[in-house]
């Protein structure tokens, strides 16, 4: 038993953090809000991040969810305005498992980051970053299909987070669009990826707020010295630190299917999504409240992170959806015991 990441996994995470600090500051997120292209995808591709889950013979790094989860946390911390979860956590693994011609054709391009893939797997058919993507993975009658974006009719929707713009996609299911991979697994991967990003977002908002609380003075002292402010931040940290192991446990469940039946995997992922969503939306509430009016202004960067947190907390099943799944699992477990 050892519930810890390896040195290599942490070193890779640190490298991604350093890169994103440099190449994905809030100005880059704002540029995406305005529909301008960003350079950060190319840098992440060069580093191997976008193709990290692709097999080595397709040009990837052959890594799994335990490697990925820490990296996605960093992408959340930066509010990376790219479909990294859909591309690296969902589509590449589904094609890898589905095999066939689609995989042969697309995996090398996706691994190199030359083509971007996204997915539309939620309860509501909302496709993030479809404007950037060449390939869409979507579900139809419980099966997965991979469709070229040029064959989809896209309608832009009014997203609360324009760093993660959403689209409705209309397309036709055909025999050769079908991918022989498991829909439930793809959905769990998307929810896990969103959970990892939510951890990073919560962490970012908490640290921004700690900084602000040390600098901002009212009544002749730093506002961070008021107990009301301290307790609120302490609560936010408490939620984040208890969400973390739950998310890492879910990554393990997805990465080691041999040790985990599909129902147990979904249970783990649902716990992760419920906790991470709450941790991030709570951190957002605390952050805004403690920043006061400046946090409510557009010029200040907090809203970029807050809106990503709201968006991801609602994506791929919100907290109550996932708690319901946990509840269903518990009910069934009682049945089988009886």
């Amino acid at each position: 038993m050892n519930f810890a990441f390896t040195e290599d996994q942490m070193a890779f995470r640190d490298a991604v953090r350093t890169l994103l600090e440099k190449e994905c500051p809030p100005e880059v997120v704002r540029a995406r809000w305005e529909g301008k292209p960003t350079e950060v995808w190319a840098s992440l591709s060069d580093m191997g991040v976008v193709g990290m889950t692709a097999p080595e013979d397709a040009g990837g790094l052959g890594m799994d969810e335990l490697d990925l989860v820490l990296v996605l946390e960093e992408c959340g911390r930066a509010a990376l305005p790219e479909p990294i979860v859909e591309h690296a956590a969902v589509v590449i693994p589904a094609l890898r498992e589905g095999g066939g011609k689609t995989a042969q054709r697309w995996l090398p391009m996706l691994a190199a980051g030359e083509a971007v893939a996204t997915a539309g797997l939620g309860e509501a058919p909302l496709v993030p970053d479809a404007d950037r993507a060449a390939l869409l993975l979507d579900d139809h009658d419980g099966c997965l299909h991979a469709v070229e974006m040029s064959a989809c009719e896209l309608t832009p929707l009014d997203s609360i987070d324009r760093g993660r713009p959403l689209f409705a996609a209309a397309w036709y299911a055909e025999k050769d669009t079908k991918v022989e991979a498991d829909f439930e697994l793809a959905f769990d991967r998307a929810a896990l990826g969103a959970s990892a990003q939510l951890l990073g977002l919560a962490d970012r908002m908490i640290s921004m707020t700690v900084e602000h609380s040390k600098e901002r003075e009212q009544f002749g002292r730093a506002i961070g010295s008021f107990q009301a402010v301290q307790h609120r931040l302490a609560d936010a940290l408490l939620r984040l630190e208890f969400a973390r192991p739950v998310v890492y446990r879910a990554a393990y469940a997805v990465a080691r299917p041999g040790e985990c039946a599909p129902a147990d995997r979904s249970l783990r992922v649902s716990m992760a999504k419920a906790y991470a969503g709450d941790a991030a939306t709570d951190a957002a509430r605390a952050a805004l409240q403690i920043h006061g009016a400046i946090g409510y202004s557009w010029e200040f960067d907090l809203h970029l992170f807050m809106k990503r947190a709201w968006s991801l907390a609602a994506a791929y099943g919100d907290g109550s959806f996932h708690r319901r799944r946990v509840g269903d699992w518990l009910q069934q477990r009682e049945d089988s015991d009886a």
């Binding site: 309860e123 509501a124 909302l126 609360i160 994506a315």
Partner: peptide, 27 residues
């Protein structure tokens, strides 16, 4: 927003109202 589920990712009167409500504990 809980009732809207996944659709809470989209702009709506409820979302705008939520953003405004967030200011209430500040002003």
């Amino acid at each position: 927003l809980g009732l809207l589920g996944d659709e809470a990712q989209l702009d709506s009167d409820w979302l705008r109202g939520f953003e405004f409500a967030l200011a209430g504990p500040i002003y």
